[in-house]
């Protein structure tokens, strides 16, 4: 698979006095993958995300995004044409006073034709269920509505890679499901690479790959099944396992072994049927 982003021995500190928040990070991201990044509060996820598209540059080491060194100022614009980003706090992302202008901002910067922009903005607003708010002021929306607008902005850009920093933190269950479905669709239909920072284990289960950060380092990296196979290690790093697996572990303590480490409800039911058949 093609490498699209490469962290080579990257360290980063916010100021000279302070300890490095990322330490000798080596991490690659690949084309067409859906990668989830997990990690405790303050583990360095947002910092890492901002290094990807040259919002920060490494204190030492190099980040190469789409073949371009992020430390070189003239690469900034070409990098951001390849990588769209949704920030943790949507207030930091609002650039216009009308919702549809805000969503159109990214595509306009890509120099797309007018009617293509129109089409993409409408599609993106519909995908996040905010079309009826298109003439509203983005500042005057509820927390979750602002978050949806920020997501629409990056969907409309259809950049080769999308980085989202906890985009669903304030969404209701239906909205959260729809956003994850939309991201999976972008990956499957357009081959867009997705990097999703999240605290939701049920989102991580849907990824091709899960990266776990701990104190500024990557400490686990693999498929969801691999990463979630060690519950006590995860807990020591501020994380948990998905609910179906937690239930399976609880049952195991009572002598009921559900095979296959179920990550979803469907997998749990399969494992349970198996158990009952073997017993009965």
């Amino acid at each position: 698979m093609n490498k699209i982003i490469e962290f080579k021995n990257v360290s980063f500190s916010y100021s000279e006095e302070e300890e490095a928040v990322l330490q000798n990070l080596d991490l690659d991201f690949y084309e067409g993958q859906f990668t989830c990044v997990l990690g405790h509060n303050g583990s360095g996820k947002s910092t890492m995300a901002k290094l990807i598209n040259a919002l920060y540059i490494p204190t030492s080491g190099t980040v190469i995004s789409y073949g371009l060194d992020t430390a070189d100022e003239k690469n900034e614009i070409p990098i951001r044409r390849n990588i769209g980003m949704v920030f943790q706090n949507p207030d930091n992302q609002i650039v216009a006073t009308i919702v549809e202008d805000d969503v159109a901002f990214g595509p306009e910067n890509l120099g797309l034709p007018r009617d293509e922009i129109r089409k993409r903005v409408d599609e993106a607003l519909k995908a996040v269920n905010m079309y009826e708010y298109r003439y509203h002021e983005p500042h005057r929306l509820s927390g979750g509505q602002k978050q949806r607008i920020a997501i629409a902005g990056v969907i409309a850009m259809k950049t080769n890679c999308i980085v989202l920093d906890e985009p669903t933190a304030m969404l209701d269950p239906k909205g959260r499901r729809e956003v994850i479905e939309t991201l999976l669709k972008l990956k499957n239909e357009y081959g867009i690479s997705v990097i999703l920072v999240t605290h939701f284990m049920d989102e991580a289960v849907k990824a091709d790959r899960v990266v776990v950060m701990n104190d500024g380092k990557v400490c686990l990296d693999g498929t969801p099944a691999q990463v979630f196979s060690n519950a006590s290690h995860l807990e020591s790093m501020g994380l948990t396992v998905p609910k179906p697996l937690e239930l399976a572990y609880q049952l195991q303590k009572n002598g009921v072994r559900i095979n296959g480490e179920p990550l979803t409800a469907a997998e749990f039911v399969d494992g349970f049927k198996n158990y009952v058949e073997n017993r009965g």
Partner: peptide, 30 residues
């Protein structure tokens, strides 16, 4: 209303749909 039951409840409901008579619906892992 745009909401959902807890994840553990959907596990429970799917078990019931698969024919396991588990009695009243549960909402927590415990």
């Amino acid at each position: 209303l745009g909401l959902d039951v807890p994840e553990i409840t959907s596990v429970f409901i799917e078990l019931k749909n698969a024919g396991f008579d588990l009695g009243k619906t549960e909402y927590t892992v415990d």
